[in-house]
Design a protein around this nucleic acid. Structure first.
Lengths: 202, 202
DNA sequence: TGGCCCATGTACCGATTGGTACACTCGCGA
DNA sequence: TCGCGAGTGTACCAATCGGTACATGGGCCA
């Protein structure tokens, strides 16, 4: 009658034996999902892949739904960390910063993570509840720092927002192109063309 | 012992009582999928939605796999038809043609179809076999006409390809933005900014 | 009119799913 | 030393899945 497997009310900071295990599991899950996709994920296969029984996944996360939510959230956080790790550079031109960011974003080691991003986007556009939160921050979360950068580079605040939005969209479009075609050189050339138009050099 | 439900070897042109029914079913299926997503589609639910038993879907398409392939193919064809229906215009400037295309592409009535596009992309990047063919034509199929347009507008053939690739990526990035945020005005403004950069007007 | 075949429905099958019940182990506090 | 609770595995459940076997109906041709 009594339910021994409830609660696990995770305060955000998860230390303690329990939170550690949770964090460890969700990290392994994100790795697996980045490599094998999230759409047809099953608790049993995931468990077998990361070395626990599907029973334990339910135990720690309460339901598959909740696990997916945490996977998506963790994946988002990883992606954002990537951006923040770049910021502090000496006196590069905006175009060089953008180029640097683009190089980092297209690192082949991140391909799985990027694919996961587009996969989750697709699911989110369909209203899958665990992926839906992504849509909120998909543009706005990335727009703010870009707008700041644009204004800092001397852009008119009125057009800075449009330029930031445009830059973000172009990067994503070219990233999708790269993942689909694998044509690194072609996509890089298109990006160079964009930077020329966007920052007016050459 | 004998299997009465085999073959249905569809020659591409499907006329005859049989091909008609097939076409009718796949059309209805695409409508349903554009509205409700393709990821968690089940033959039973689809059948119930379009008024046949799941048995008949297997009968006409042989397997779920094959049905999904035809759904994806039909959806692609619809999207391409949209482009070809626009071509013949009198003497508009390239920027105006692009603007017109953008307006048509962002028609709210096409939102379901666009969402399906991104959903299928996400699946295809994961190697789902029925969606994989999309990746082939995802860039190249659209690039050719755009390159032709660029060259026709006087662009250097060497950069025309880069410009076409860039334009395609930007349109897709902004379309994803629009679907995610619904901020029509903001996305349109970003597109105007792009057209200004791209065609140099203003 | 009679027979045949295509279309369709119903009932079923084995596999897989998310989730649960229960037994077991093991380390720590009294 | 005892016991108790957290962590874990095994076995199971109902639901749903794609796919199949078989029965039936209804129109076309001889």
């Amino acid at each position: 009658m009594v339910n021994t497997d409830d609660a696990h009310s995770e305060g955000d900071a998860g230390q303690g034996t329990d939170g550690d295990r949770r964090t460890q599991l969700v990290d392994a899950a994100v790795d697996h999902v980045a490599a094998h996709g999230i759409a047809d994920l099953s608790l049993r296969r995931l468990g077998a892949a990361i070395g626990v029984s599907h029973r334990m996944l339910i135990h720690y996360f309460g339901s598959k739904e909740q696990l997916l939510i945490e996977i998506v959230r963790t994946s988002e956080r990883r992606q954002r960390d990537l951006l923040s790790r770049l910021r502090l550079e000496p006196g590069l031109s905006p175009a060089d910063v953008a180029r640097r960011l683009w190089q980092q974003l297209t690192d082949p080691r991140l391909a799985g993570q990027e694919r996961l991003f587009f996969e989750v986007c697709g699911q989110a556009l369909r209203g899958r509840p665990e992926a839906a939160p992504v849509l909120e921050g998909l543009v706005t979360d990335w727009l703010e720092p870009l707008v700041v950068a644009e204004v800092g580079a001397g852009a008119d605040p009125a057009v800075a927002r449009n330029r930031a939005r445009l830059g973000l969209a172009t990067v994503r479009g070219l990233l999708l192109d790269l993942l689909a075609t694998g044509d690194r050189a072609g996509v890089d050339a298109a990006m160079e063309e964009f930077l020329r138009l966007f920052y007016g050099s050459k």
